[in-house]
Nucleic acid binder design. Structure first.
Length: 203
DNA sequence: GTAGGGATAATCT
DNA sequence: GATTATCCCTACG
């Protein structure tokens, strides 16, 4: 295993707290597209580029924080740029990036990644061979990237789990969110993805 | 290739 | 006791 020190070029271009705090949640959901998530694990480095996001705002009925602070959603009220991870359907975890000022319960769900680094390890984690099956959904990417609930509340400006700038260029498609029930603000156009990218969870 | 439904448990009422 | 920001397998064209 390669030893990486804090002065390594590998840590250049890590997105700072200022990046997350300088935007409202909808703007950040767009800005996160094209950024690359890295996870340093014992089995090596895993990474993927964010190709699909969904925003959840405080005054939005589908938001976990809509009814206020609880034990589960507490990280959503913390500092922008920390992670919020929850368990859903008794089966899957979902990975979110907290947004908005402290005390406001907003976050962005990461719905899909384009796998980049550590492809063999991701295939093992997922028991799938096709690249399209590795990260094309919120539950899938958490499994592929070996993210677990211990990262709930982790600052994404620090290893071993962090985001970096990339040079990617693309067009953004805006549409409605996935899996939102009736009467829960399901019509809001809070889902964003990279036009033409084949690694999104659905068109 | 697509549609339908079951799995499964933390969280909140 | 109901609900849930999902995934995967099976059945059928």
């Amino acid at each position: 295993m390669t030893l990486i020190t804090n002065s390594s070029p590998f840590y250049k271009n890590i997105l700072s707290t200022e990046f997350y705090q300088s935007k409202d949640t909808l703007s950040l959901a767009r800005a996160l597209l094209g950024k690359e998530i890295f996870h340093e694990t014992a089995e090596g480095i895993l990474s993927g580029i964010i190709v699909e996001t969904e925003a959840y705002l405080q005054n939005d009925k589908a938001c976990h924080a809509y009814k206020g602070l609880t034990a589960r959603n507490a990280p959503m009220f913390g500092t922008a740029g920390t992670s919020y991870i929850y368990f859903i359907y008794g089966v899957h975890h979902c990975f979110n990036i907290v947004s908005g000022p402290d005390g406001l319960g907003e976050a962005i769900l990461i719905r899909a990644l384009e796998p980049k680094t550590g492809l063999d390890q991701m295939k093992k984690n997922r028991s799938k061979e096709s690249l399209k099956d590795l990260c094309s959904g919120p539950g899938k990417l958490v499994q592929a990237m070996a993210i677990d609930k211990n990262f709930n509340g982790h600052s994404l400006t620090e290893p071993p789990l962090f985001l970096k700038q990339t040079m990617k260029e693309f067009e953004i498609i805006e549409t409605t969110r996935v899996g939102i029930g009736k009467g829960k603000d399901e019509h809001l156009p809070y889902r964003f993805y990279i036009k033409g990218n084949k690694f999104i969870s659905k068109p």
